[in-house]
Design a binder for these strands. Sequence first.
DNA 1: ATGGATGCAAAGCGTTTGCATACAG
DNA 2: CTGTATGCAAACGCTTTGCATCCAT
Lengths: 171, 171
Amino acid sequence: MSNQSGSELEMQEVTVSPVEKFREFLSTRSKRLTQERETIVREIFADHEHFDSDQIVSRLTQPGRDGGRVSRATVYRTLRELENAGLIRRVARSNDREVYEHDYGYPQHDHFICTKCNQLVEFKNSEISDVLVKVAAEHGFRMSGHRLEVHGMCSDCARPPVRRHRKLDMI
Amino acid sequence: MSNQSGSELEMQEVTVSPVEKFREFLSTRSKRLTQERETIVREIFADHEHFDSDQIVSRLTQPGRDGGRVSRATVYRTLRELENAGLIRRVARSNDREVYEHDYGYPQHDHFICTKCNQLVEFKNSEISDVLVKVAAEHGFRMSGHRLEVHGMCSDCARPPVRRHRKLDMI
DNA sequence: ATGGATGCAAAGCGTTTGCATACAG
DNA sequence: CTGTATGCAAACGCTTTGCATCCAT
């Protein structure tokens, strides 16, 4: 549940790959791009889905995995680095877990969270940040970013069950 | 840190006290308003500050406390009930802890969170929910609420340190 | 070679829960 | 009375950390 989301947003033109970007970040802090870190970055950027720590851990610690296995501890340590590097960011809390998404090569957007099916749906609206920048300024606040979750029911869950699946109900 | 905030927002006219409101809620679910629960509600609604579970726990479990001591487990159990009852709500995450605030008798608003001093500042702006309702509708989403954190630097922290505390710097 | 990184298992930390006892309705 | 609620301590689930070993630079 709570994934699929297949992004209606378009990918931005990016010059360097996530791995390269990460390597650059690491070098500025005299840290190293190890095989484990590269494995994790490739896994995360293989698609554009939202994810949480445990999903990555369970994929990368599987017994006969090609491309290198990585320990749970290293996944956690690397996720934190990737966040610091600006490659990923935490977007919401779902089921008491922090949900991450790509923050590199992906345009700013916000999320609907369906209170019934837990689905995360992205949406983009420039008015929101316009208003926020304005309001922040009015309060002497220098905005650097925001985190917005809109709660409610998605179209599927909101639709009344009436006269749907009539035939199916008779099976 | 991260409190004080003394709300510039005005209190709404409320007819029933939080305790009464809670009693009503509980009775509809055949639950009871115990002394412990009443103690917790009074403590929480004694002021309008933001708070987290641990703050309430440490206040209510102090050795020689008048007005009744309450166990840690009961505080957690009651906070959840108060959330269900709509008396409080979670507004943000700060220092890996869930921050609560009153949701009863208090108008809808959002928060700035200073990335430097961690201060939470409330602000009210009707345009935001107007935009959200509209955007939600466009996506077939039936909005029931939202959670918005605006990150950045508050006026105090953003102000350049130049010629401030000149004397203090020399201590 | 050498300081940073990994893996493992143990420790942390906020939160939840099982169970015997204590009360609100 | 009877079903809820409390308190305590143990259990949980996610995340972090100590330490010996390993490896990118």
